[in-house]
Simulated assay, not measured.
Amino acid sequence: MEISRRGFLALSSAIGASLLLGNNAEAVEGKYATLIDLTKCDGCKDEPIPRCVKACREYNKDRFPEPKKPIQPYWPRKTYEDWSDKKNKIDTLTPYNWIFVQKLNVDGQEINIPRRCMHCDNPPCVRECPFGALTKQPEGNSVINDKICFGGAKCRDVCPWHIPQRQAGVGIYLQILPKYAGGGVMYKCDLCKDKIRKGEEPACVTACRDRLKENAVFSFGERKAIYELAYRKAQEEGLYIYGDKQNGGTSTLYISKIPFEAIEKVLKAKKEKFQMPVKVENKIESKFNPIGKLVLASGFISMAAAFIGALSSRKTKKEDETNEK
């Protein structure tokens, strides 16, 4: 992939806009939501791969990263994140696996939890990405643009669930400052963005219903209807809800007969990488100093200008050399 001066200018504009305006955005409820009923999930125990995981991988396989090797670490780091030799790993989130089923034993009760992006109403990952690579869509999903993601992992740092995962050796950083800036590209569930734009269901939802029919774990639809379904089932069946309040609200709700405080206690005790904190405050409310952000934005824009100038100088030099021949 090569980047033109116009492309880089567009990138720098996105960076500036994200830095200056991102944190001032308000929470926006999306069009759709998902309900995940943990009382029904058995982790597809009789199958080698849970249906939701298999469907996600199949639908998104053409978008999986193909790193350029050998991968070089970038200063000042001496390591990099490379999952390319673990493409078939399905028991965690990776750049090649955007949903997995977390298996737990809580007070003698087996529980299976499909884990993927929560798609927050006011997503910190979107507001804090310094490159403008993340956007919140009208449908309610947050999406990473892999064409302008530098893999800085700010999105993962501010995500309460640490969902996005990084793959080195791919992305725009290879064309700009591969030794000094960027770490690859971040990947996560985007709720099958192309499908839901057409009014279709995400692949994981369809696959689950194909297996369990009316007892499907996943329910997907208009946000209001999904929220009403979750509250009604919680009241009628004595269940607990997760996702409606956490991080200011999300487009992904869970219901469970086991309190989520008990679930989180087990996850903490096991030191699981992906936990389910019950008390999650939205980090957008703790904003950066606006003057500091202005300075940072100016720095990025200056870097963009310098790079564009370098490209222009190199082009001029090549033209001069050509004319001399």
Rank of each mutant, 00 (worst) to 15 (best):
R209T: 15
R209L: 03
A234S: 10
P290K: 01
K273N: 03
K268C: 01
G299N: 11
S251Q: 12
A225S: 15
I255V: 15
F260E: 06
A305G: 10
S302W: 10
V266R: 08
I258E: 04
F274D: 15
G248R: 04
E264A: 11
D210W: 06
Q235W: 10
K273C: 03
K245Y: 08
G238V: 11
L296N: 04
E228I: 04
G221F: 09
F218V: 06
G292N: 10
S312G: 10
A305S: 15
A269M: 08
Q275M: 13
F300R: 06
K213F: 14
D244T: 14
E236A: 05
N282S: 00
S302V: 03
K257L: 04
D244Y: 08
R211M: 09
K279G: 02
A207V: 13
L212R: 12
I226P: 10
P259Q: 15
G299I: 15
A306D: 14
G292T: 12
E237V: 07
S312T: 15
A306F: 14
F260M: 02
L311E: 14
C208P: 05
G292M: 09
P290Y: 02
N282W: 00
E261W: 10
N282D: 02
T252Q: 09
K293W: 06
Y254Q: 01
Q275F: 13
E214T: 03
I255Y: 05
L253P: 02
K245F: 03
E236I: 04
D244S: 14
V217N: 01
S313D: 12
V217F: 06
S302F: 09
Y227S: 01
A225F: 02
T252D: 06
E222H: 07
C208L: 03
E285V: 08
K293E: 15
K279W: 11
E236P: 00
Y240H: 15
T206H: 04
I291D: 04
S298F: 08
Y254F: 09
A305K: 08
K287Y: 07
K283L: 05
K283P: 00
L294W: 01
E222Y: 01
G309D: 07
Q275C: 06
K213R: 13
A269S: 14
L229N: 03
L296E: 07
Y227E: 13
I263P: 00
N247H: 00
A269E: 15
M303E: 01
T252C: 05
I291W: 06
N215S: 15
N247V: 00
K224S: 05
A262V: 07
F300V: 02
A216N: 11
N282M: 00
F307S: 04
K265N: 06
I284A: 00
G243Y: 12
A230F: 12
I263K: 04
K271V: 12
E264K: 07
T206D: 02
R223S: 11
A225D: 14
K224T: 05
F260L: 01
L212H: 07
